Simulated assay, not measured.
Amino acid sequence: MPFVKKSPVLFSISTALNILFPFIGDQVKAETISNKKADALLTITAENPKQIEGIESHPANLMVNGTIPIAIESSADSEKGSPALRRQPTGGERFEPKRIPLRIPLPKQPYRASPSITVINPSAYGASWGSFGIGFGFQERARFIDRSDGVIGLGFGVGNPQKNVGAQIGVSLVDVSSLFRDGAINVKLHRRLPQDFSVALGVQGITTWGDTDGGSSVYGVTTKRFKLRKDRTKPFSEVYTTLGLGGGQFRSESDINNGNETVGVFGSVAVKIIEPVGFVTEWTGQDLTLGLPLVLFRRLPLVIVPAVTDVTGTAGDGTRFVVGVGYSFSF
């Protein structure tokens, strides 16, 4: 089935890149131990009776240089910090070192990505230097048209949002049947602040070519993270709130149809249900969207976001199913 892009508001996969980039490499750190090391055998010998920390050797059967057993006993001198040593009868038995397998519990590999904190709305997070991403967006039907719609997005980051300012540059290709015929360039400047705040200024469609339907949309947005639990791997550990103002696609559908140059309000609330699964509810400036972001693989930075949009019916012609898939990598 051919894709068509006719829709009052562009469902841009650059949004999926906005929410994927900041969480790559920003996971809880965990030391990993190879199976080879975990299965290694550790020999406890007389030359080094303290090879394993935390294991107390019995004082009655220690070896010195592998020959003479000794014992440590209390004496008057030991009260002064000087334990006395005496020879321990061997009984004719020779000490043989024992090989004891060392078993170390392996921690689980941390996820290389986190569930998205928005679906369609941009967040205040963004890509930094060395981050790249690619994504794909699909909707079962565009508004007012009984045909599917798709879009491809590419993006990369420059700068450092923690030290100064980061910039995310994205390209949206809105006609998958002819990739470079219609598209737009999107730019977002973002900064991370203390107390888990982030702010951003951006333009969706700062430059367009062909027929994108979305036009240009300037916006400002802030995102705040609330830590509910110290361990981010535990259920319901975090909540993210996003609030923004913008023109263009963030205006109400009636203002767009009437050509009113107003400013719309958009916002999102995201809950991390478990480490690889989240739930997002958001107001896009026109209608309600509900999504269930998923990270299916621990070691693969791939995020899938199935969602339903236009839930309340204040825009469009009924509820629609949309899905975004984003993959990010860095060097």
Rank of each mutant, 00 (worst) to 15 (best):
G92R: 06
S148F: 01
K108L: 13
Q88M: 09
G130R: 05
A71W: 07
R86D: 09
R94E: 15
N164I: 07
D146A: 12
I117A: 05
T118L: 12
P107A: 10
R147E: 03
P69E: 02
P122S: 13
A76L: 12
S114W: 01
G133A: 06
G166Y: 01
D149Y: 02
P97A: 09
A124V: 07
P69T: 06
A76T: 15
G81S: 06
A142Y: 00
N164H: 06
P105Q: 11
A142H: 00
Q88F: 05
K163F: 04
R141P: 00
A71I: 14
R99M: 12
A71M: 14
G126D: 07
K108A: 14
Q139P: 00
G66C: 02
A84L: 11
G166S: 01
R143S: 05
A142Q: 00
A113L: 04
P89G: 07
I72P: 05
P110Y: 08
T90D: 10
L102F: 13
N65K: 07
V119K: 14
T118W: 09
G133H: 03
W129G: 14
Q139R: 01
G159R: 02
R112P: 01
S114L: 03
A71K: 15
A167Y: 10
N160H: 09
G155S: 09
D146T: 05
R94C: 08
G66N: 12
P97F: 08
S82A: 10
A124K: 04
S116Y: 03
F156W: 15
Q109Y: 11
Q139Y: 00
R94W: 13
S128C: 08
G92E: 07
E73I: 12
F156N: 05
Q162H: 10
P105V: 08
L154V: 13
E140H: 02
R99Q: 15
P83R: 01
S74M: 12
I72V: 15
K108D: 15
I68W: 10
G91M: 04
Q88S: 08
I134P: 01
S74F: 07
G66T: 09
Q139A: 01
I68A: 06
P122D: 13
P83A: 10
G150A: 15
S148T: 02
R87E: 09
